[in-house]
């Protein structure tokens, strides 16, 4: 073997190690599709709760009534838990199939980078909610989620960065038109997740 071939292999192995050590590549695209589906189901339930008989694309003039707060929170919590559970389960399965460690330095770093903006956003939204600012929920959740994704994107597939940007933009739009909050919420957490999940699945899971 010529030295050049040897060095070429060295370079390839360095590149592989750099990527493997900094990126959590077991995130399953399928879990994105599922999370999006749960979000759409949740959004439909919320629609019947707060907007029906108004059409889904109609601008809602009234704010959410306090009595609806608990059921809405329950729907949101159910969507969150179901998404996290299927994400955990499917990613774990993908890691096992690839013979790669699931919980290690890299995934730990990913969780921390995701959680800092996400937990801040969650608490921030909850505190505003307790003060009766219902209109802020959809935009702030979308924006903080987008920031969390952009923050964690060095530890994920590069494309996640663009998902993050899109969530931020949708969140800002939701702030501009609070009456479309539910629609933007369904777009950001539902449609985008399904779209991105499908792209990731085609590109990396098969």
């Amino acid at each position: 073997m010529k030295p050049a071939d040897h060095y070429q292999e060295d370079l390839a192995s360095i590149r592989k190690m750099m990527e493997q050590s900094s990126k959590f590549l077991s995130l399953s695209g399928l879990s994105g599709i599922l999370a999006g589906t749960y979000a759409l189901l949740g959004a439909s339930a919320a629609y019947y709760l707060i907007q029906f008989p108004l059409a889904p694309i109609d601008y809602r003039q009234e704010s959410v009534r306090g009595a609806n707060l608990v059921p809405l929170l329950a729907i949101a919590a159910a969507v969150l838990v179901a998404s996290l559970a299927s994400g955990y389960w499917l990613s774990r399965r993908k890691a096992e199939k690839a013979g790669q460690p699931f919980w290690n330095e890299t995934s730990r770093r990913l969780v921390i980078n995701l959680l800092i903006p996400l937990a801040t956003g969650g608490l921030f939204t909850l505190l505003l909610l307790l003060n009766g600012h219902f209109g802020v929920v959809a935009p702030s959740l979308l924006i903080f989620y987008g920031l969390a994704l952009t923050n964690a994107s060095p530890n994920l597939y590069g494309e996640i960065r663009y998902l993050g940007y899109s969530e931020i933009l949708i969140g800002l739009a939701a702030a501009l038109w609070p009456g479309y909050g539910l629609l933007f919420w369904a777009l950001g957490f539902g449609v985008l997740h399904i779209l991105y999940g499908a792209v990731m699945y085609r590109k990396y899971d098969r």
Binding site: S13, I14, R15, M17, M18, S21, S22, E105, R109
Partner: peptide
């Protein structure tokens, strides 16, 4: 490989 990993992290 060690140097690569420590450069990336």
């Amino acid at each position: 490989q060690i140097m690569g990993v420590l450069t990336a992290n």
